[in-house]
Amino acid sequence: MSSFTSRLPLSRSAIDRDDVSRQRDDLLDELWADASTLVLPLHDGSAPLRTDGSLALVPPFPVDSSVLRVYLGRTLPDERDAGGTPVVAVVVDERTVPGVGEVEWVGLRAVGAALPARDAGIFTEALAMANWHATHRFSPRSGAPTTAARAGWVRIDPTDGKDLFPRTDAAIIVGVTDADDRLLLGANAMWAGKRYSLLAGFVEPGESLEAAVAREVHEESGLRVDQVTYLGSQPWPFPASLMVGFTARVAEGASTQPVPDGQEIIDLRWFSREELAASLDEIGLPGHASIARAIIEQWYGGPIEDGIEW
């Protein structure tokens, strides 16, 4: 793992996804009868966090047959676990769950960077799968209600029996610099102009990642870039993205005057490292769980202490 990738909180994982076991029709019932199985409850995108900063993984508890369960795999050995423990995510309608105890229900954005590697991987995988199920209740082919199968990793169209598999949307995110090594940051319209981040966007059909970088930067800022360099990637299950990180440089001879598109991006600013440090009491930066934060801090040369909390 590269030094940059090791800094991406949601790319960490300590679980064997165990694809082979998913093929057993009775797997979830078997695991539910096994007291050693660990269960992660999810409610409205949140999971229970214990006071020690770890996820509250509990033994199986009674659930209705209509409740969504997804087999996440088996743990790998770490300081808390000898490995091989099965883990299942379950989507619950309320936060009263047997065995959870005193917890705080939290979102992945808020705690992803602080979770142990195993918990970060489990939460990210569970949330991504729960979001996929929530948005694929009906077949795109026939419109008929679909049913979950293969331990939660497939939904089936009842009209033709065909499998529908989970999808991930590729998106690029890019740290754009100029000849003076200043970093370009933009304010999205939904942030009221007070939070600045990198330029990003979804990859379009028939488009390479590198072409998406050049297109998105030009669409959002009017700038032309080259020297597009891959850094690393991180899952971002909000609801189903894979953020692919790059750096790029304004092309030689091209204008360095950014022009926001006025719809998605309402302001664009170049920052030197000194200017960014001096602005932290005025602007917010991306959260510590995001790849955007990792790219900014790599350019900056180290961790950045937040001024405004977002």
Rank of each mutant, 00 (worst) to 15 (best):
P62A: 04
R50F: 10
I122Q: 13
V90L: 01
L231V: 09
I156A: 14
S233P: 00
D119T: 13
A189F: 14
V259C: 10
L57D: 08
E216S: 01
G99V: 11
V154C: 05
R95A: 02
A278N: 03
S11P: 07
I291H: 04
V97P: 07
A151M: 10
V39W: 08
A248K: 07
Y300H: 10
P258D: 10
P205L: 08
I265L: 15
L42F: 05
R69H: 02
I156M: 14
W105E: 05
T37F: 10
P235R: 02
E309V: 05
S279F: 06
V174E: 04
G284Q: 03
P239S: 06
F238M: 02
T177M: 05
T229V: 13
W105D: 08
S139I: 05
G284N: 03
E264R: 12
D281H: 07
P77I: 14
L108K: 05
A187C: 12
V203E: 07
D267W: 09
A211S: 02
R224Q: 07
D267H: 12
V90E: 00
E220V: 00
L38N: 04
L223N: 07
G284L: 00
T177S: 12
G53P: 11
F165H: 04
V259T: 11
F246H: 13
F123V: 04
